[in-house]
């Protein structure tokens, strides 16, 4: 079936099998492999992307369900060579090690700050309940998000 959506600002139309998951569409059809797959039970959040500006686990959505939507993946976050403030904060605070959960974690964090622009530590931690990281122990991820919230350039934008 035909599906059309805007991915990182570029409209595209493709023919897909109905069962094709959004994450596979993004990775294999659109060639955007930055969005990772870490589980098969909607548990880990590695595949988090923004659908119409909100965080969604792209492994739990059919590509067809995104018809007409605006999708932002990790590849669409930076502005040219300039990292998005959230990416910058993750780097500054060593909020990543192996980097596999990172794209999903960053997208979840961007969505979180849209909803709660100035969160407490507890709100950040609860807001990340759907994203698992095995390397960092979350300490520096939380620090990065708290710092991004304070950054002059709005990290949620």
């Amino acid at each position: 079936m035909e599906v059309s959506m805007t991915v990182n600002g570029s409209p595209r139309t493709d023919s897909v099998e109905p069962r094709l998951l959004l994450v596979h569409y993004l990775r294999e059809v659109a060639g955007l492999t930055g969005t990772n797959i870490g589980c098969d039970t909607s548990s880990c959040g590695a595949c988090t992307v923004l659908v119409d500006g909100e965080s969604v686990k792209s492994c739990t959505m059919l590509a067809l369900q995104a018809d007409g939507a605006e999708i932002t993946t990790i590849e669409g976050l930076a502005d040219g060579d300039e990292l998005h403030p959230m990416q910058e904060a993750f780097r500054e605070h060593h909020g990543l090690q192996c980097g596999y959960c990172t794209p999903g974690m960053v997208m979840a964090a961007v969505s979180l700050l849209k909803e709660i622009p100035d969160p407490t530590e507890a709100q950040v931690r609860e807001g990340l309940e759907g994203n698992l990281c095995r390397c960092t122990g979350y300490h520096n991820i939380v620090q990065a998000i708290l710092a991004a919230a304070k950054a002059p350039a709005r990290a949620a934008s």
Binding site: V51, T60, L112, G127
Partner: peptide, 9 residues
């Protein structure tokens, strides 16, 4: 319910 991503969908 679930987590933020789940609640968005």
């Amino acid at each position: 319910v679930g987590d933020p991503q789940v609640r968005h969908r």
